[in-house]
Simulated scan of single mutants.
Amino acid sequence: MLLIVIMLIVAYLCGSLSGGLIFSKIMHLRNPSEFGSHNPGATNMLRVNGKFPAFCVLLFDMLKGLLPVYISYRLGIAPFFLGVIAIAACLGHIFPCFFHFHGGKGVATAMGSVIMLGYDFSGLLLATWVIAVLVTRYSSVGAIITFLLAPLYVWFIRPEMTMPVAMLSCLIIVRHSSNIQRLFKGEEPKICFKSKNKPIQ
């Protein structure tokens, strides 16, 4: 149990590292928490600074979800608690202790954390997100549809993980409540794939 508690703390601290703020400083770009939707995640990084910085943030945010779960798996922690550790990493991304508890939506971190459940499951999630985004041009719609379907997917592939994945999905969907309101009002911004890469002046 002590090992599980330690890994929960490690996962939360890893999740608290904000890829958007870190890469905006390294690349001397605009801080995504001060522009666009003020969200430090990859989608707002795309809107504010372009494709390559957004890709870096996406990869970073996925890795910080994957690594704690992978380490926990190698340490022999039970599958159910692997799901709880994934949730801890997402909570770190959403409420980062290093950045005044103001974080992103947790989608990339959640996607990274479930890779350990198998490439079939994570591949289904990725395909669902890509198709939904290409059809609607809304990143939020992609995330909502993907995590609505995630518990169903995992029930067929790894049924013992249905409960933690359902908990993770609820967290992501609740986090998108403001996006859902904007979608109904027609105020949700669509994804723009134009490259910007504008350095700060």
Rank of each mutant, 00 (worst) to 15 (best):
T162N: 01
T109F: 00
V10F: 05
F81W: 12
G118W: 00
T146P: 00
G36L: 13
K190H: 13
L134P: 09
H102A: 09
G112E: 14
T136G: 05
L134R: 10
V130Y: 06
S24R: 11
L3I: 12
R137V: 13
Q201W: 06
G123W: 05
S178P: 09
P164W: 00
S72W: 08
V57G: 08
I131R: 13
L58C: 13
R30I: 12
R30F: 13
G65N: 07
L91W: 00
A89C: 05
I71T: 10
A78E: 15
E34C: 00
L21D: 04
I94A: 06
M27T: 13
L59M: 08
L82Q: 04
L63E: 14
M1N: 07
C97W: 12
P68N: 09
M62E: 03
M1V: 07
D61N: 04
C14I: 15
F23Q: 04
L134K: 12
L2W: 12
V141A: 11
L58V: 14
V133G: 04
G186T: 00
N179F: 05
M7A: 05
L59I: 13
D120V: 08
V107L: 02
N31H: 08
T146Y: 03
I144Y: 02
V135G: 05
W155T: 09
S177K: 14
V107E: 01
M27F: 15
L183E: 06
